[in-house]
Amino acid sequence: MLISNLELVPGRRVTRHLGLVQGSTVRAKHVGKDLFASLKNIVGGELKAYTELLQESREEATQRMVAQAEAAGANAILNVRFATSSITARAAEIFAYGTAVVLE
């Protein structure tokens, strides 16, 4: 499965267009890690636990998008975009979407 945020793949032709595919996940933070992060909030610096959490969530969302594309019979997803939004103060939704296509 080729995943790209380009609208076309250089040197390859799109033979079929299978429409929008998407994947999303909602994640919340572990209380213990949140405690450490609130200490970090005093002195600044990177919140590694949050970086990792959002990165893992993005991978999860991407996997769900890929599963949908596979079910549709695609071999590539083009024009992929990511979006993040806070659902509540402690949970965030990570969303990935793109266009499933068949490349020759």
Partner: peptide
């Protein structure tokens, strides 16, 4: 597709 991300905390 390549990506990079970072969460940076504010300080007091």
């Amino acid at each position: 597709l390549v990506s990079g991300s970072a969460v940076i905390s504010e300080d007091y």
